[in-house]
Design a protein around this nucleic acid. Sequence first.
DNA 1: CCGATTACTTTAGTAGATCAAGCATTAGTC
DNA 2: GACTAATGCTTGATCTACTAAAGTAATCGG
Lengths: 140, 140
Amino acid sequence: MALPNGPVTTSSQAEAVLFDLVDAYDRAYEAAAAELSLTPAQACLLGRLDQRRGMGALAEELGCDASNITQIVMRLEALGLVTREPNPRDRRARLVARTPRGDEINQRFATAFTFARTAVGRLSPDEQDQLTALLRKALG
Amino acid sequence: MALPNGPVTTSSQAEAVLFDLVDAYDRAYEAAAAELSLTPAQACLLGRLDQRRGMGALAEELGCDASNITQIVMRLEALGLVTREPNPRDRRARLVARTPRGDEINQRFATAFTFARTAVGRLSPDEQDQLTALLRKALG
DNA sequence: CCGATTACTTTAGTAGATCAAGCATTAGTC
DNA sequence: GACTAATGCTTGATCTACTAAAGTAATCGG
């Protein structure tokens, strides 16, 4: 995603800074993934595998078609970062799990993606709480 | 962009809500674009044409390759939403401008993308100012 | 006037995404 | 227990976004 989800008309300052935040976040996420030769989608999926998961569960959680997950998992498998094990309880299903190398890459990604950590770190603990409360309220 | 740029490890609540915000924003942007049969990239580019612009300027502003812009503009042109006029001052360059229909679609997109407006609207004017200040500080 | 740069396009390739169709396997029903 | 329906995933086709490399045309600097 190189093109930002930019504002068409930015009526308020708060909306403008909201956009700046989203844009910066997305770019930083992509850059961190690129450092590890991952696409954003691959980094995202890898990050959801703290416990092994079925393809369908991943598709639902990430809000996309199952066949999309199939492809991303295939590429991660080719990179040696995940495995697709048969589910003993249901032979239709597969359980996706990170390999040790997948764990390592995921950890390095978490280290490389400093954006949220850094941004929050610029605020005092009190300010962090304020921000959390305001954003929760704004999210409804 | 269906897969969110999700957190790998979410150390603080502020980071988690930051992710929720970005995820919700991106999804809402995509959904609003889809309502008008646009892709997010198309809606984004269309939104940057309040004044006519060169291809290179768009590429730089959106942080992607010029050839990418060429293609997106081609599709928008095929949809009748933009024109590519020759630049009288430099016959290498093209000036991209919205057509009347492009203006209309862009306006309807702005109406359809309610996310930022709605989110900010849940806050009082004072809270909006606080949020703006906090996010500016967090963005460094 | 000529070489270098600029502005954009073309071509080729990868990846994300969706839809439709297909194949197993499991679950429900009679 | 067999038949049908639903589930879980894969395959194939098609689109868009994006990048990199190479190409074309026009402008600029000397």
